[in-house]
Amino acid sequence: MVELIVFALMAAASLAGGVTVIRARNPVYSAMGLLATLFSMAVLYVLQLAHFVAAVQVIVYAGAVMTLFLFVIMLIGVDKDENTAETIPHQRRLAMAIGLIAIGLGTALVARGRFSWVPLVDTPASAAETNGTVQALAEPMFTDWVLAFEATALLLTVAAAGAIALASTRKPIISRVPSSPAVSPSRRAERGVGGSGQEGRGGHPVLPPAAGDTRAGS
């Protein structure tokens, strides 16, 4: 009973978060929607006794990845209107149609109760088997899956090095501050003259592209 209530709440929250991600005009609201979805996912993992995965999901995804997203959103600026030209004719209408068909299929599954295709083998033995505590996960991690473990460790190191290489440049900081952001005449008149060069479109301050690194060579 408790599981049903929690599942219903978290499913609603994650779906609401997902819809916010695709519908919000402002990317920061999309990021908040994704955060809601990630939290709901973590609670759903706990419901399925995957405790370690839930904790790692919050630490890595909600704590680190989403912070990185928010940083980049603040860096890039949020108010440029999206280009609504479509590369494939009727792209948006087709996409909405396919999406609604997919969502309709899912709803039909729910309504007809067909998702009992996958039964729950709910014996105490199976609950103990799948209890995802750290101790239970550690043993396969370092015996059966150790190669994948080492490979992902190497992958993380390479990704970090690659990100640093991509994001760093050699020019001094001052010359990279944009002098006059591309602002439409109506917006410029509305803001008046003389906003500092640091304001992006729509008045939200954006960081110069090199914000975050302190001094060259420090």
């Binding site: 955060l35 405790h51 370690f52 839930a54 904790a55 790692v56 919050v58 630490i59 909600a62 704590g63 680190a64 989403m66 912070t67 928010l70 940083f71 603040m74 505590t133 750290v134």
Partner: peptide, 21 residues
């Protein structure tokens, strides 16, 4: 919790959001 220490790390990661938002 049997992942109590990870919970601590998770909560201190979340405190970052208040600041950035």
């Amino acid at each position: 919790l049997n992942v109590g220490v990870l919970f601590i790390l998770a909560m201190s990661s979340l405190a970052v959001y208040a600041v950035v938002l």
